[in-house]
Design a protein around this nucleic acid. Structure first.
Lengths: 145, 145
DNA sequence: GATAGATTGATGTTCAATTTCATTTCAGTT
DNA sequence: AACTGAAATGAAATTGAACATCAATCTATC
């Protein structure tokens, strides 16, 4: 789904919840969509300040929470204590392969894995909403030779 | 592996690292082993205070870190910002099914899933060290009927 | 039991995240 | 276009989990 559609769906979410489409929310969403994935709210705030020195810290936090609630972004926790955000670009669920040494993050998808998740949830009579999978190890560059 | 063995392996870890086997560390390990899984350091501290009002907050944090380093416990992050600990009871890797509504946590294992993880890591030339999988959804009790 | 070095625990600090609140902005109405 | 009530903003204060500090205490070893 393209940027325009995402922006429309955010506006729709806002009006459906009697929230307002403000200039700041638009700017933050734009910056989020044009930034690398897995940024923290803090990092996004720093990026925003470059072109919008007037945007507040708390507003970035609040807007990121909104984006998560509206399904546009997902909150993620990796090793550290910060919450990071990634855009829900596609309908596909994707997973992460993370290098213990250099921190490199590789995203991947796997329908076979996903099928097993659905099956497992079903066995426990759970309705599945979302899932997190992280595989940790050493990437080719960081392996002792 | 039984409680006694765990305690021995902790003592072994301590002496191997020139650390000392103190009364507090023993008490904390005992409480950890006899508590429900997935407690935070804070929760464990509160439990400990009931019988050991003299044990310090920081000591619990430090000891939990030690337990994690020694392989007796694993640190986990679920939805919230707290670090939770679970005992590494078995050699099997296990995963979590978590209810969005009531927070219930169900553990499960699945060799088939694990095999796919190994295969995926191999495809990216990663050496796999550990993995986290969490499936979120609604448990049978929390589903709208 | 003396000694060196590690540990404890009360307190302080850090840092991400949240809350507060006076002021401003938005969206719908006239 | 001006009015109005509700929501949003931003600066600053607050929270809360986790970690650091340091004098007093305990442990392992000799």
């Amino acid at each position: 789904m393209g940027t325009v559609k995402v922006k429309d769906s955010f506006r729709e979410y806002l009006s459906k919840h009697n929230l307002k489409a403000t200039r700041q929310r638009e700017i933050i969403l734009d910056e989020f969509l044009s930034s690398p994935s897995h940024l923290s709210a803090e990092e996004l705030y720093l990026r925003l300040r470059r072109n919008n020195p007037n945007i507040g810290y708390a507003t970035v936090y609040r807007t990121m929470k909104l984006l998560a609630e509206s399904g546009i972004a997902s909150e993620r926790h990796f090793g550290d204590r910060q919450t990071r955000y990634e855009p829900n670009i596609s309908e596909e669920h994707h997973y992460h392969l993370i290098c213990n040494a250099c921190g490199k993050i590789i995203e991947f998808e796997d329908p076979q894995i996903e099928a097993l998740f659905v099956k497992t949830a079903g066995m426990h009579n759970f309705t599945l909403s979302h899932q997190r999978l992280e595989l940790y190890g050493l990437c080719p560059d960081c392996q002792p030779s």
